[in-house]
Nucleic acid binder design. Structure first.
Lengths: 210, 210, 210, 210
DNA sequence: AATGAATGAGGCTTCATTCAT
DNA sequence: CATGAATGAAGCCTCATTCAT
């Protein structure tokens, strides 16, 4: 690593800058056209050449991962902080609100594609799941969450509010809050009815076992 | 030559058969790759030539409509029947269960794409929405549904259980029932909290005005 | 359905009728879309199946030949009659007028494609050329036609008025008469200037030599 | 502009070269098959990939425009120069000679398709028509042109010599001169007969009103 | 003999990715 | 390293022609 003495120049500076330009442009394009936005459009918006794009990202999927990563990390750290909150039920709701607010801009659904995700994303997903697990545990214990839902349930439901709203092209930017509220009411103990199917387990990473 | 007496004569039996082969293949491919599955893959799976596809469907969108239409019609008629059921709350739940069970096989989300759908689909959507409206009305009146949700809410939430589950490639075929139960609990009056955003209105067709 | 006795019926009758239906439909479609009108459109208009089309015509080119043939024959016979007319100059003009009037409806240019035409068309072309040759001969002798133009010249110029007009999508149906008049004036002896290139000879059929 | 020192580096030398290869190949193919020559054939002849074609031309129509444009522009400027010539009649003939000489290589008939042409071509056509208008005006005034023909007439007759010759696959490269001479004789005042149809007006652009 | 379904070779265009400059 | 031209595999769709019924 390090390339210690190339010369006096800071050769990394504008390389790093290009990377940021591409990421920013990509978010705009992905928001406009979805994940099928063309690489050419992204580079045009970023003001770099296509070759530069592939120097930084190898693959379009790579870019997507790179975009998603900081948001996952950020979300995990928010979750981490909320684990210590005074009101565990409010903490879980706030976490889900943050998650949905973020996804409203970036399509994180990619992250959930359990089987096909690249390793880095799987790793991030596991981390996030671990955090959710602790939030859920506390909420359940405190009586704010029905007893029969698991961290995986919450993880899977996390993006549902956004998806519901995506069907509507002219939806206001905050409509997802309405559906998050409804779904969250469904997670509360009050008025909970029996669940007809056991919780899925296939996302549990080994590390969670411990 | 002479066709040594094959049998009675299938006048267009094989045309109808090809149509079914294509529809079946399309459902498989759409399930695997989403609506962006290639026509060529569909025809290959169906064992017909590409030209045959376009003899039957004019357009790829046409195929999607053809796949979706009978399900919507069926769903609407199920809803229509349930409007007369003794228990309005149970009727609504059953309706949503049917809807999700169907969508588990065909990607009906296409139907919800409000603005861009072909006219026939818009028409079907409006019919369905009208039916849901009546189910919701009765459920609300009977006290089985919270007061602050509308037919459009229910319509939009209709496919959420499936979508939640889609993220999981190895999900059991009935896992969606779990999330429908949770979401439906969120629609009940018990434990309902205030909704932070007004219901969307952009789907209301004139005909609903009655 | 009837068909009581399979016998004495005239089986050729509706076959011939179908042929005419196809020819009529083809002329309409060719007039509307040019020679690239689709066979499917022609058969639809004719009210016959595509298979029937190919029973009658083998090939789309075949149809075109079949359409062109009677017009050429007709034109040749008109020319033949005009050979005996009192005023050879007027006769030639009338011939060209007939030719253009016909071509206004059918694209006879196909006929002129010297090298690639099917044998039947070549034969027809030769006949027509022979007739034109006699018309030209008389007109030249009578002083109504400049000395330096040949039958081949007249043959080649024959469709020019139509072509000129084809560029104009909204041209009136008789505009070609204007350009025929101009071109014919160019063929008159009055004010004729020297021609910078010898007349082409490649169309002369052996039979003309005699 | 600038580029003062040509020097080393061919910055896009080969891109420009490919563009020329494609244009040259297109002219060959268009000459052979007409405007319906396939893009694939053009690229194969040019020795480039299909993608390269669309990098340079966006659309097949674009290519056609690109082929036609310089010739139209060139023709217009030749016409413009000839407006100042001493002998207006000779000037008009020379203009038509240039036009036909050019069209012998590129299929300019595309240009004439009045209604359907892309805007750029319509614009070019209008310019050209304006120039022709002035040539015609002067020729008419000087007595070299019959009184009853308009600029639109000349414009429409412009390509007739080529078309006449196109029917003959083995025509010598200069045969068109023969038919231009004949047609031009038809445009002279000597021996002019009455024209049976008024001149078309649909091409007159507003700008000609001047 | 008629029917119309099936065929499959193309046609135009897009786009992720590679590579010469 | 950046650049942007080149690549070529798909993608959707059309249409003359063949073939089973």
């Amino acid at each position: 690593m390090a390339t210690p003495r190339k010369r006096a120049r800071p050769p990394r500076a504008d390389a790093a800058r290009n990377r940021e330009l591409i990421l920013a442009a990509a978010e705009v394009e992905f928001t406009k056209r979805g994940l099928r936005a063309a690489v050419a459009d992204i580079t045009r918006r970023a003001g770099v050449a296509k070759g530069t794009f592939f120097r930084h990202f190898t693959t379009k999927d790579d870019l997507i991962t790179a975009i998603v990563e900081p948001h996952i990390v950020n979300l995990a750290s928010i979750g981490e902080r909320l684990v210590g909150a005074a009101d565990p039920g409010a903490a879980l709701l706030e976490f889900l609100t943050e998650a949905a607010a973020q996804r409203q801009q970036r399509d994180i659904s990619y992250l959930l594609r359990a089987g096909v995700a690249p390793p880095r994303v799987t790793e991030l997903r596991d981390d996030l799941l671990a955090t959710i697990s602790r939030l859920v545990e506390r909420a359940r214990t405190s009586g704010a969450l029905r007893k029969d839902v698991t961290a995986t349930d919450v993880f899977l439901l996390m993006c549902a509010p956004n998806h519901v709203v995506e069907s509507l092209p002219d939806a206001g930017p905050d409509l997802w809050r309405r559906y998050l509220a409804i779904i969250f009411d469904g997670l509360r103990p009050e008025g909970a009815h029996h669940l007809p199917h056991p919780a899925p387990t296939m996302l549990e990473p080994t590390r969670l076992r411990r």
